[in-house]
Amino acid sequence: MNVFRLTGDLSHLAAIIILLLKIWKTRSCAGISGKSQILFAVVFTSRYLDLLTSFISLYNTSMKVIYIGCAYATLYFVYMKFKATYDGNHDTFRVEFLLVPVGGLSFLVNHDFSPLEILWTFSIYLESVAILPQLFMISKTGEAETITTHYLFFLGLYRALYLFNWIWRFYFEGFFDMIAIVAGLVQTILYCDFFYLYITKVLKGKKLSLPA
């Protein structure tokens, strides 16, 4: 464990909690892409199956349980409890355009052709593009609630911090995983446009609205 990975995990946890609180407090999931939340639930489910097979640490297990629990709680909020506030008309990204290439790639490019490894690879590739429906929805509605931009900021920041974690681990442990690094780079690059708007607008007290 290093400071980048710890702050990365805490940033990820903060994002997940901010989203749950936003929906719970405002009793509305307006502006939230249910499709992205489905993809995140799939990412966690396919990546954390090793909860059943191996124990790494209390931290590792408890964080995985929290992530999976919050992911499904969010889905419950979006598609059941606060379904009336779900803006399906703007959440129209074709997720099959993500699932098919990502599914195919995880069979072609992986470290080991075993079920758990392919599922892990699939979750890594899927996570890198899972935010696209959410970013697409914001571009369609032309704006985002400020609390939603904070959610996106911490979500994007978490994988950026993981990139530093991988630099740290390569330098100090001589370890690296090309699949996770390339996917993490793609994932972080997809947030760059949002990061620019967040820093130049939201942090200056303005509302995030597009076109910029």
Partner: peptide, 10 residues
């Protein structure tokens, strides 16, 4: 393989 280690990451 090298990816074995990364399974300690979330």
């Amino acid at each position: 393989s090298q990816s074995r280690n990364i399974k300690d990451e979330l």
